[in-house]
Design a protein around this nucleic acid. Structure first.
Length: 601
DNA sequence: CCCCCCCC
């Protein structure tokens, strides 16, 4: 008897007839691994299950690689399952039970034997009884049932133009290249833009989309004329019946959708919208990474991110250096509850259509993590999916946080550049620089030094520059009230002042001539370039008296040193890329380290 | 059958 273990007698027959009992308790009598052709994420097992009255062998379960299958005689409860009709080798239809979630109630060891005397469920036993021929259910357990009204014919063909809507759907997880008679009922979670290609094998266009159902997800790609046929029809978030696509092993290099297969539309492919959209079919699943964590994740990783648009740039158009293609981008700064911000670069359509007014919540599925100048950034790629203010729990939460708090905070920007990854700039003294013959690296050598300004030159320290934002080129005063920039080839009615300072900096070991541009020179002088220019112009100060105040000030200087040949003479050119006040704690730590190194030498 | 994803 199965008595003590409370097997749900008759449950398997009920399920195979399309019924939907809650938490049925069954016993595992045997397991067999299903051989598969490709390396894959999940391992599939065929199960022999008993409910104490009947046994079925058409049950399947997917497990993580290496996960041990359920031991024989275990008593388990089926928390989530789905049934599906598949074609077997003899081309007849067979209903199978897919176990999606279970719990072991009693270990196989404890039970130790087959419970009761179950008999094999026959085909006749599993056919729906005449009283239940109206509606079949195929669903996960526990939620409101999703019902499907089967077609009048129980053996529906999908190849002859007959409607495929309303059929009992197969789960995505049951699809494989080995049978092609299936219909899936899926939501479109993502749809790419139409892309064209041209290479030695030919040219064409394509788009791809990701289908989702309760059992999993799969990518589907359409080429050439099938793009025209299906691109407009398939819309993100809508539900469709899909059949007759070709399956092949997924190319994991480019496809991050969690399925060992991907599929391609063919001329036989039939897609029909499902109008009584089923809320149980899931939406795109997100696995959001908080922004502060992105600082420590490997570059190149695909990331799901949610953030409030703190600000966004204008649309920028430029030519790609390598391909010559015209590119469009827009920079967006995202901020989240970790009080961190990151730059997100949108490309193409995403960039064009983006509107940052009113600080929308931005959700990106599969953004690519990048790095620039020591800071991290995110970038959309072809398979990224952006949503603005989506109806998600996380979206409401971050909206509330931003409106009440985030709007006012000064976030840590993990995209902040430090010219060269600030963190690892080695401390040196000028004698080290000399001894180590620095400056031969392609991009120059970087170091930081605690230095004293010994002499700042007043000659040619300030100049009138092109007023356009990016251009700092010296401008020609046409003496007509207009100024001409040779670089931009434009005449402007105004100019801006810029500093280009040359100074001799010393430390305990030596000295070095260095140059610095406006941003750094302003910190040294304690005046903006504009203020310097005006004071000299209105003669309230001379340039000499302004630079004199800089002498003998001390700073931490981050320097880039590079050997350059000048009139056949090699000399070390040093640019101060960053000026900071002295952080004594950090500088002392460096000195202590240096002393200890000397003592142990 | 694509699979480049760009720039500072």
């Amino acid at each position: 008897m199965s008595g003590n273990y409370n097997l749900t007698e008759g449950a398997l027959q009920n399920i195979m007839r399309g019924g939907d009992p809650t938490d049925p308790i069954v016993q595992v009598l045997g397991t067999k691994k299903i051989q598969n052709s490709s390396e894959k994420e999940k391992e599939r097992y065929r199960l022999l299950l008993s409910d104490g009255k009947f046994t079925i062998s058409f049950a399947m379960i997917s497990l993580q690689p290496g996960e041990r299958c359920i031991p024989n005689f275990s008593v388990i409860v089926l928390k989530q399952y789905i049934t599906s009709v598949v074609n077997n080798a003899s081309k007849t239809e067979q209903r199978i039970l897919l176990v999606l979630e279970f719990e072991i109630l009693h270990s196989g060891e404890t039970v130790g034997k087959k419970l009761g005397t179950p008999t094999q469920l026959t085909d006749a036993d599993s056919k729906p009884s005449s009283s239940s021929n109206g509606t079949l259910t195929a669903k996960t357990n526990g939620n409101a049932p999703s019902t499907y009204k089967p077609n009048s014919s129980s053996n529906v063909s999908v190849s002859d133009g007959v409607s495929i809507a309303g059929q009992l759907a197969h789960p995505i997880s049951s699809l494989s290249p080995y049978h092609n008679k299936w219909v899936i009922k899926v939501r479109v979670g993502n749809k790419s833009a139409i892309r064209t290609w041209s290479n030695s094998k030919g040219e064409g266009k394509l788009f791809s989309c990701d289908f989702i159902d309760e059992s999993g997800e799969i990518r589907c790609t359409a080429f050439r004329d099938l793009v025209d046929k299906f691109y407009e029809m398939l819309q993100i978030d809508k539900v469709y019946y899909v059949s007759k696509c070709q399956l092949k092993p997924a190319n994991k290099q480019f496809n991050t959708v969690k399925n060992e297969y991907e599929m391609t539309m063919t001329n036989e492919t039939v897609i029909q919208e499902c109008l009584d959209a089923d809320p149980n079919i899931p939406q795109t699943k997100y696995d959001f990474t908080p922004i502060d964590k992105l600082a420590h994740i490997e570059v190149g990783t695909l990331i799901d991110v949610i953030g409030v648009c703190k600000n966004s740039s204008e649309l920028v158009t430029f030519q790609a250096k390598t391909t010559g293609r015209e590119l469009k981008k827009r920079e967006v700064t995202l901020i989240d509850q970790t009080r961190s911000a990151i730059a997100l670069t949108l490309w193409g359509n995403d960039a064009e259509s983006f509107d940052g007014t009113n600080n929308p919540v931005v959700v990106i599925k599969s953004a690519k993590l990048g790095e620039f100048g020591g800071g991290k950034n995110l970038s959309t790629i072809a398979s990224s999916q952006m949503r603005i203010n989506p109806e998600l729990q996380e979206c409401y939460r971050i909206r509330g946080w931003y409106d009440s708090e985030g709007v006012n905070i000064d976030a840590t920007n993990i995209s902040a550049r430090s010219e060269m990854g600030n963190f690892n700039t080695p401390w040196m003294c000028f004698k080290d620089v000399q001894d180590q013959s620095l400056g031969n690296a392609e991009k120059g050598d970087y170091y930081q030094v605690m230095g004293t300004i010994l002499l700042m030159r007043s000659e040619n320290c300030i100049y009138k520059a092109c007023p356009s934002e990016k251009c700092n080129k010296k401008i020609v005063d046409l003496e007509t009230g207009m100024y001409r920039c040779e670089k931009c080839g434009t005449e402007y009615p105004s100019f801006k002042y810029r500093l280009l300072a040359s100074m001799n900096v010393g430390d305990w070991s030596g000295n070095q001539w260095v140059s610095m541009f406006s941003n750094e020179a302003e910190k040294v002088l304690g005046l903006t370039a504009q203020e310097v220019g005006e004071q000299v112009d209105n003669q309230s100060q001379t340039m000499a008296s302004i630079v004199d105040k800089a002498n003998f000030k001390q700073f931490v200087l981050k320097c880039r040193a590079k050997m350059e040949t000048y009139n056949d003479e090699a000399r070390l050119k040093t640019v101060v890329v960053r000026v900071d006040p002295i952080n004594y704690e950090e500088y002392n730590a460096h000195l202590i380290e240096r002393i200890q190194a000397l003592m142990s030498a």
